[in-house]
Computed example of a mutant assay.
Amino acid sequence: MTNELILVRHARCEHMDEMLLGRTVDAPLDAQGVRQAEATASALRHRDDLLIMASPRRRARQTAAAIAALTGGEVVSSDAIDEIDFGPWSGQTFAQLAGDAGWRYWNEHRSSAATPSGERIADVQARMLRQLNRWREDFPGRVIAIVTHAEVIRAVLMHWLDAPIDGYGRLAIDPASYSTVSLGDWGVRIEGINQRVAA
């Protein structure tokens, strides 16, 4: 049985260009983000029997709610697709983080570095893949929209692409973009990455 997965990055939210939101700053969508979420919802409105899984962060839940409002899909919150646990880095401005040697190491050596909480990209990939396999078992054949965060989407896509995680900067995952994947017993097929709609 094959599932179609739609990996949606949450829409633009307040403060996202100023600071690392992480799990600490539960910022809402800004005005542009609301428009982006509605545009993404419109692009997905033709999907039948859509099941919508959302990170518990407010920005993801609001994006998921916009998709549900237009598609009639059911929204379920899941900790397994939450943002990376950045620990005390969360809530710091990017200017503050620029002076942090650990932050610089994280961005230069993603494959081996860990956040202050101890989470590594390999951990993010593992929790995401475990959850996707669980959903495949629980909801065979369903179309599942997974509304989460840029690094979570990037991590799992790079795993499927057999790409080195230190090359993460080569893979753009924009706000309100979606990437489509078919996942079956035969393996994975990536059908689109960072697809965007005008808002």
Rank of each mutant, 00 (worst) to 15 (best):
P164G: 07
G184A: 02
A41P: 10
R23V: 00
A122S: 13
M158N: 07
I190T: 02
D166Y: 13
L20F: 08
A43Y: 06
R127C: 03
A39L: 02
F139M: 12
E151L: 15
A155N: 04
D17T: 10
V181K: 10
W89L: 03
A114F: 01
I144H: 14
R142V: 03
D174M: 06
G72P: 13
W135F: 12
V76Y: 11
I6L: 14
G91N: 01
T148E: 07
A122I: 01
M16Q: 15
A155Q: 03
T93M: 06
G73F: 14
R45K: 14
F94Y: 15
G22E: 06
Q92M: 11
S78G: 07
A101W: 00
A43D: 07
R45N: 02
H159N: 12
R127A: 01
Y178C: 10
P164M: 02
D174H: 13
S42T: 11
T93F: 04
L21H: 11
G33P: 05
I173G: 10
R45F: 02
D162I: 01
G141Q: 10
D174K: 10
R57T: 13
E83I: 01
A65D: 12
F94R: 05
Q195R: 15
L129S: 05
V25M: 04
V181A: 07
A41R: 10
R130A: 14
E191D: 14
S117P: 03
L50Y: 11
N194K: 12
W103S: 03
W186Q: 02
G141E: 13
D100H: 02
I193N: 06
R58G: 05
T63W: 09
G192F: 07
D82S: 12
L5F: 09
E83S: 06
S42C: 03
G187Y: 00
W135G: 08
G99F: 03
E74C: 10
G87I: 02
Q131Y: 13
I52F: 11
S77V: 15
N133E: 15
I6T: 05
R196P: 02
A31M: 02
S55A: 08
Q125F: 00
R134M: 10
